[in-house]
Design a protein around this nucleic acid. Structure first.
Length: 579
RNA sequence: GCGUCCGUAGCUCAACUGGAUAGAGCAUCAGACUUCGGAUCUGAGGGUUGAGGGUUCGAAUCCUUCCGGGCGCACCA
């Protein structure tokens, strides 16, 4: 029973069910909560059970609360029970109860429920950038989000596969190969082209790629009959290696990289489309012309369509191009089905906002193929707006003019980037001020949190240098009731709130909550620390009062472990000293 | 036009999926400390949550109609 809210909820629910003769199931299915009220004058804790279930027992919530109080008063955890407002039940719990949970936390080192996802196989697909160039800031957000979400799912007991889908088929890759061939020619002839074709990737990184290919195959590479497909393959490999390297600089290391091209050559697309055909979900038809968007060469055309509209999409979606090739969508259907066949029952895609219109059709195909056995969740990351000197930096892949992820990590550092990306909820646009983060790094909240961790290490060092010997591995001899300051209890409550934050974050797939929580936790700690500066008796270490010092060390260690746990999930380091 | 995300303090953002008096940081102003490391702390001012209507004990949150913005809208990925 390591979660205090869950513990109290069980007790209150059980009493309620006994008194009003309501089944446990009814209570479990209600939206009844035990929470910390915003306003401290409303007590330490609060429950809405009487309001939520008033109709169920056809009683006035205030009267019900009064009855419930009489019963809860007999239980020793509860103090100061009172009815407030329309039927809230506010109360305090005894200090001993708080201390019991602190003691348990220190003893077991379990900060939250690590078995939420027991036996659940989740696949998280993220980044999946086309291997046509280096990663830039636009990729950064989804990359960090996917990685943190994966971490969060893992520590809560899920089996997680972190996956990257390589779009190594299709016309963009042909363009890539053609652009590289132009660079190879330039190198061989030692002179630049005057006019590049319209569909040319101008980035200088392709010159490096061209050089490496010449190094490997010699200057006669272009005379080889198979040179196009050879070069195509080499381009993808080289650029993918760069991408992996960049990701690892951000501490992102995915488990599986799946090639679109291989799915095609293995015949998985045809097989999947056949299955849809057997389910009678495919037909030949003509789509209406899209409204609101001018398309010059639009003409009615009969196409192979998937009946996604039967599963909530607006219209049916094409599977085959006019040249007979499968569409990207067709390939993607097969890809997602493949994830399911490999054993994942929950597929999560981390997508950029520009893919928002894609979700319904994807969801439709997964529902159809897995007969609703697989769950699909798409998390959209809104765009990152890059600001410098108060102006927005526009990025253009066409001109090859963008700030690479690699440069950003070099300038700002992995910890700052990761924390910054998580210090916002994913569906809100993010403004990333380049100048602010690089030049005035003090404004970055990550340092505030890390500083709290480092300060605690510093106190522990100090304990050592003052030659005070305490058992910091086992606190069974510690008298927690020495913690009698309001701020200390407040910090303790915050620590015990961590498991609630983890529960919420994982159930809503909203890891940003952890970043905000850590900031608040650090704030409680810094505040307590500062009290010791004005009042010596409030310093954590008091050589004349060892029992009290011991209890405070227990509190600090619990704080530090919680900070470290949260930062670990965010993939941010927990330094023992700030440089 | 359709779909989708968003609109909260001067700025950047939260708000435990319907809870009580909507909170932080930055900026502004006023304070604290001969530091268990000042990358710190305390306090003040700042709001009709874009607008109207609805649902109920209760709405920033759900429904609806507007207004404003981002993204997307056959045979690209």
């Amino acid at each position: 029973m390591r979660n205090i809210n869950g513990y109290l909820k069980n007790i209150i629910g059980a009493e309620f069910s006994k008194i009003f003769n309501v089944s446990n199931e009814t209570i479990d299915n209600s939206s009844f909560v035990v929470e910390y009220p915003k306003n401290k004058s409303d007590g330490e804790l609060s429950t809405n059970i009487c309001m939520v279930l008033a109709k169920e027992i056809s009683a006035n919530p205030v009267e019900a609360a009064k009855t419930l109080i009489k019963s809860l008063e007999k239980i020793e955890d509860f103090e100061m029970l009172e009815v407030a407002g329309p039927g809230f039940l506010n109360f305090n719990i005894s200090k001993d109860t708080w201390f019991r949970f602190l003691s348990q936390l220190l003893e077991t080192n379990l900060l939250f429920n690590e078995e939420i996802g027991l036996n659940k196989n989740i696949n998280v697909e993220y980044v999946s950038a086309n291997p046509t160039g280096p990663l830039h800031i636009g990729h950064c957000r989804g990359a960090v989000f996917g990685d943190v979400l994966s971490n969060l799912l893992k520590v809560t007991g899920h089996n997680v596969t972190k996956e990257y889908y390589i779009n190594d088929a299709g016309t963009q890759i042909d363009t890539l190969a053609n652009s590289t061939i132009i660079r190879i020619k330039e190198i061989i002839n030692s002179k630049s082209l005057e006019d590049y074709p319209d569909d040319f990737y101008p980035g200088e990184y392709l010159i490096d790629v061209a050089k490496k290919i010449i190094d490997k195959y010699g200057t006669s590479i272009l005379e080889n009959d198979n040179h196009f497909s050879t070069i195509k393959g080499e381009c993808v490999n080289l650029l993918l290696e760069n991408i992996k390297e960049d990701l690892s600089k951000l501490s992102i290391n995915q488990d599986i990289f799946v090639s679109e091209k291989e799915l095609i050559t293995q015949g998985k697309i045809d097989k999947t489309i056949d299955e849809l055909k057997n389910m009678n979900l495919i037909y030949k038809g003509i789509l209406d012309k899209p409204k609101g968007k001018q398309i010059e060469d639009w003409e009615p055309r009969k196409q192979l369509l998937f009946k996604s509209s039967e599963y909530g999409d607006e219209i049916d979606r094409p599977l085959q191009k006019s040249d007979g090739e499968w569409t990207y969508f067709a390939n993607d259907i097969a890809y997602h089905y493949d994830k399911y066949l490999r054993g994942s029952t929950h597929l999560i895609d981390i997508l950029g906002a520009d893919h928002g219109g894609y979700i319904k059709r994807m969801s439709a195909s997964i529902q159809a193929l897995t007969n609703n056995k697989a769950r699909f969740t798409a998390k959209l990351c809104q765009m990152v707006k890059l600001i410098s000197d108060g102006k927005e930096l526009k990025m253009s892949k066409r001109s090859g003019d963008f700030i690479t992820l690699s440069d950003l990590v070099k300038e700002v550092g992995s910890d700052s980037i990761r924390f910054m990306m998580m210090y916002r909820k994913n569906e809100a646009p993010l403004e990333f001020d380049f100048k602010k983060v690089t030049e005035q790094s003090k404004e970055n909240p990550v340092f505030y949190v890390q500083y709290a961790h480092a300060r605690i290490s510093s106190v522990l060092n100090n304990l050592h240098s003052q030659n005070i010997k305490l058992n910091l591995e086992n606190f069974s001899e510690c008298n927690f009731s020495e913690l009698n300051d309001l701020s200390e209890i407040s910090l303790l409550k915050k620590i015990l709130d961590y498991s609630n934050i983890i529960n919420t974050s994982v159930s809503l797939f909203e890891p940003h909550r952890i970043a905000y929580y850590l900031y608040e936790l650090a704030s409680e700690f810094h505040s307590l620390w500062s009290q010791g500066k004005v009042d010596n008796s409030k310093k954590f270490i008091d050589a004349d009062n060892i029992p009290r010092t011991y209890a405070r060390m227990a509190l600090l260690i619990a704080t530090q472990r919680t900070i470290k746990s949260g930062l670990d999930i965010l993939g941010v380091s927990s330094p023992d000293e700030m440089k």
